Simulated assay, not measured.
Amino acid sequence: MPKTPHVALLIETSREYARGLLRGVARYQQEHGPWSIYFEPHGLDDPLPEWLVGWKGDGILARVNSRDMAETIVASGIPAVDVRGALPDVGLPFIGVDNEPVSKLAYEHLKSMGLRNFAFCGTPRGENPNQDRRCDYFVSEVEKDGYSCGTWLGEQQRLRAHSWEEQQQQIAVWLRDLPKPVGIMTCHDDRGQQVLDACRRAGVSVPDSAAVISVDNDPHLCNLSTPTMTSIDVNPSRIGYEAAAMLHGLMTGNQPPRRVTFLGPPRGIAPRRSTDALHIEDQDVAEAVRYIRENATSGIRVSDIIARTKTSPSTLERRVKKLLGRTIKSEITRIRLAHARLLLSETEFSVAKIADKAGFSEPKYFCEVFRKHEGVTATEYRRRFRDE
């Protein structure tokens, strides 16, 4: 009988992202195990478990959060994979989120609200390279369209040196000075919740004066926020699954990858009240966009939108294209595909049923459109992004 691998999971349970990683690891070992799992519930900043020093296991999956942790893992000589990426120079293979499509998705969502002022609220530069990339990609997307982007990263004084009240006051001052209305991306849900609280302190109305979108889609933080917070689901379960697969390879003699591995794109946006507004001065376009978002999955056609306005078809098309950067038909398709992706990843519905629920006239047409836009078939998408 082959030996059962002993694997340590140094992944916290205090964040939804980390819990998603654990779900993915669990699914992998159920499919390809069994593994003997060494695991204790803990927080990200908790000290290393005492048993790790001198432990003689076969593999480690870790959210490496300190040099002491990294050095202990490297010194053990045990095959290990990092699923945090905060310390890219420690010599451990890393697998994580591709932040470029995450930032692009956030920008496109805010831009589609009709916003033309943008800002990013993150953490001090150098604290986490992934969050730095998230900021840089967002600013790049904004500037490519000719707009400017304000940033607040707490760079002058590290945030941990301040109390919650002092942090909130700093963010509130920054928020008051931003041009309004403004679309704000935050680096993660923790910061997003802070921004929404600071908006209340600063008297900035959400979503009318500031629309806020965050990352990780932690349902507790997002629904505890006032108003509830829109967030991007980066599908941590898939990252946990692929990290477990990478570790399995290392434990069976594979060489570690020479480069970091980024998985993407994200699963999609979980829309909530913090971005539930339209800032479009052109009333005909605003009405058209609102109608599309409310009815795209009901099988509407371009002619249905045009019939609701007194504007000529060519004029309405031109104005929509100018404000959204895409045609009426493209906007309908975008909404339908977003709904289809959600159904593929979260339900047991057949592809044919999903095509119908997303507003496509025929399953075959849906499959063609999905593959054209997503680069994979609907069935393959489900396999990759399913969070079981």
Rank of each mutant, 00 (worst) to 15 (best):
I60C: 12
K56N: 14
W174M: 07
K180Y: 07
S225E: 01
K357E: 14
L178M: 04
L278A: 05
P257V: 09
P227M: 07
M185S: 04
G183H: 04
Y241R: 12
G122T: 05
T261N: 13
E50W: 00
L250P: 08
K3V: 13
C187F: 12
C121P: 01
A119N: 10
H109I: 05
L175Q: 02
R259M: 10
E348P: 01
I354G: 05
D189A: 04
H109S: 13
R318W: 04
S350E: 11
T151I: 15
T309Y: 03
D136K: 09
R318S: 14
S314G: 02
L153R: 15
N130P: 00
A18Y: 07
D276K: 08
L10A: 06
L263V: 15
H279Q: 12
R319L: 10
R290W: 01
S361F: 00
C149G: 06
T315P: 00
R63S: 15
A70N: 10
E127N: 11
P47K: 07
S330Y: 00
N99H: 13
R191T: 13
K3D: 12
D304I: 02
N65L: 12
R125A: 09
R371L: 12
M69A: 12
I78P: 09
F39G: 00
E141M: 10
C121E: 03
F120D: 08
E294N: 08
C222S: 09
R116Q: 11
S298A: 13
E31K: 14
M69S: 07
H248K: 13
